[in-house]
Design a protein around this nucleic acid. Structure first.
Length: 338
DNA sequence: CGATTAGA
DNA sequence: TCTAATCGG
């Protein structure tokens, strides 16, 4: 979920080819959650192997990374550690929401309502131990590095960018900008269109870059003020003010300032200073290693086909795309845009 | 989501 | 050859 900054954030659409040579600090939680909620079969059931283990995320990781690596983009997956205590309410609320969704999923299945079942299955997706472990295993076999964050993955990913070890954070959420990432890359995808959950509507989806400088520039706010904007709208750490969206929040912070506004309106933000600090000085580490390796073809075949029932033909075809390339598309692509 | 297949 | 539907595990 994260923060609603979409409306006040300038975006620059790019092609995957434009990202050649870039390192992307991928928010693993965000990415896995999307794979898990979206990659579904009939009745909203996730893909699974013959033992009943969910494999939707493995499919997503494999093909996404093949596309990314094939284009000379180097991903590093950043996994969440312990959520800050400020987030406890949000974590609990999400748990409850998933629990409800699972109940409603059962009801929908019993009623034979496939469409509702699909929606509820999506809402009940959760990252359990199996998903995290098998994801780490697959990434490792693909030669894709992983970083374990002490706290929020997005904060750690932002730090990796700040340190110059990655070019952008890869996530759908905007939080990494609040954590100080210089750039955010959304829609790390090669395929054009995506189907909207509602009905038969399709939207063109291309990768898009959001730079923190551009956000700051466009709104006449610095990062600290941007954090105040988010706090007004609501974040994972606080509820936000009813009826205030990003647009008015920017206006309020620029013209009045968050504290004065709260005072005048007789409002209060629970633990305001702590929330600010959670964004401005998050729990991150510089003790990480980012190193890419060669995909282990045999081990990948054993893992995906032998153990989890993937089609050998398809996996081989995917792995072949990782071998012979950079024949035509090599250097001199860096720096075509900022 | 991304790949594959069906169909215009 | 291109796009819409539907597999995949």
């Amino acid at each position: 979920m994260g923060v609603n900054l979409g409306d006040v954030v300038p975006k620059r659409e790019v092609e995957m080819e434009d990202l050649f040579g870039r390192v992307i600090a991928v928010d693993a939680y965000n990415t896995l959650y999307q794979f898990l909620s979206i990659i579904r079969g009939p009745g909203g059931r996730p893909l699974e192997d013959s033992e009943g283990r969910v494999t939707s995320h493995l499919s997503g990781i494999l093909y996404r990374n093949v596309n990314v690596l094939e284009n000379g983009v180097r991903p590093v997956y950043v996994f969440d550690g312990e959520p800050p205590s400020l987030k406890a309410g949000t974590v609990e609320a999400r748990r409850e929401r998933r629990r409800e969704a699972r109940e409603e999923l059962e009801e929908a299945r019993e009623a034979g309502d496939e469409e509702r079942a699909y929606v509820k299955a999506t809402q009940s997706a959760s990252l359990d131990e199996w998903v995290l472990e098998s994801s780490a295993d697959l990434l490792s076999l693909m030669g894709v590095p992983e970083v374990q964050a002490p706290g929020e993955g997005e904060a750690q990913a932002a730090r990796i960018v700040q340190n110059g070890d990655a070019w952008a954070v890869g996530s759908q959420d905007f939080d990494s900008l609040l954590f100080g990432a210089d750039r955010l890359l959304r829609n790390l995808t090669v395929s054009g269109r995506r189907k909207l959950p509602g009905r038969n509507e399709y939207v063109e989806v291309r990768p898009e870059v959001v730079s923190l400088d551009a956000v700051v520039e466009a709104n006449g706010l610095d990062r600290e003020e941007l954090v105040d904007v988010a706090i007004l709208c609501g974040t994972d750490y606080n509820e936000g003010v009813r009826g205030v969206g990003p647009r008015t929040a920017v206006k309020v912070v620029r013209e009045t300032g968050l504290e004065t506004y709260l005072e005048v309106e007789g409002l209060e933000v629970e633990g305001l200073d702590a929330v600010r600090e959670a964004f401005l000085s998050p729990d991150v580490t510089d003790d990480y290693v980012v190193e890419w390796g060669e995909p282990d073809r045999d081990a990948l075949l054993e893992f995906l086909c032998g153990r989890h029932g993937f089609s050998e033909d398809r996996v081989l075809k995917a792995l072949d795309r990782l071998e012979l390339d950079d024949g035509d598309k090599n250097q001199s692509r860096l720096g075509v845009f900022y």
